[in-house]
């Protein structure tokens, strides 16, 4: 069977340390998948492997059945890295460039989101606050409309209002184009409001995954679920 995202026994080693360690997981269901983990758990490395930014030390990443690596990056994945640096142009110009680079770009969604988040379309990228810069990158990543969208710590730098709006943004984007949206975060209760599934990784290995409905029926909060996984009382 061909999976949309298939990570098969993947290890990524930096020197003596394994950032990702013999990790195997498949993701097929459209929806918002929260990727939870402590600092240094391997969340960003895992996303970079799926995006084809990094080459696995061993194992294989496949997207829609095709092997993915720096030599063969999948066009079906978009990745918005935390603190991604964009060209120092207005958000409007960046959206236009992204539109020209992708004919499936959902320009209407992107422009609506710009105005919903009250982002000045002409203000140069470097003059935006960190949270607003992240929002511009996230809007571009979602509007590109690939089968898999990965957002690395998108809510860093967001205030409370932006965090709530961000959740609306994810849900609206998914409603327009059902696909896999993988979001890594430390803000567990935020992602719990919107996620359909949670995956927990620790020390580069997948510790647990579960539908949000199951988690909600057993735990008072996503924090509790996460801590219970780390303490070893909950397994995949």
């Amino acid at each position: 069977m061909t999976h949309i995202v298939e990570i098969a026994d993947v290890t990524k080693r930096y020197g003596d340390a394994n950032a990702v360690n013999q990790l195997t997981v498949t993701v097929d269901q459209p929806g918002i998948h929260g990727l939870l983990g402590r600092n240094g758990a391997g969340k960003t490395t895992l996303m970079k492997l799926v995006a084809g930014h990094l080459k696995p030390t061993s194992g294989e990443v496949r997207i829609n059945g095709e092997a993915c690596s720096p030599q063969r990056m999948s066009r079906s994945v978009s990745f918005v890295e935390s603190r991604a640096s964009q060209f120092n142009m207005g958000a409007s110009s960046l959206l236009r460039a992204a539109h020209q680079l992708h004919n499936d770009f959902d320009d209407e969604f992107a422009r609506t989101m710009l105005s919903k988040f009250e982002l000045d379309p002409k203000k140069k990228y470097k003059r935006l606050s960190f949270g607003m810069q992240t929002m511009v990158s996230t809007i571009i990543g979602l509007a590109i409309n690939t089968d898999v969208v990965m957002l690395d710590e998108p809510s860093l730098g967001f205030d409370v209002v932006m965090r709530r709006r961000f959740i609306d943004l994810l849900r609206e984007s998914l409603d327009r184009h059902p696909r896999i949206i993988l979001v890594s975060t430390h803000q567990m209760d935020d992602i719990a409001r919107v996620a359909d599934h949670l995956l927990v990784i620790d020390a580069g290995t997948l510790r647990a995954r579960a539908p949000m409905s199951d988690i909600a029926s057993q735990f008072a909060s996503a924090d509790d679920y996460f801590l219970s996984v780390l303490e070893g009382s909950t397994d995949e």
Partner: peptide, 11 residues
């Protein structure tokens, strides 16, 4: 979901 391979119309 969108088609597995994103087909771009732009040259």
């Amino acid at each position: 979901m969108s088609s597995p391979t994103i087909v771009s119309n732009g040259s």
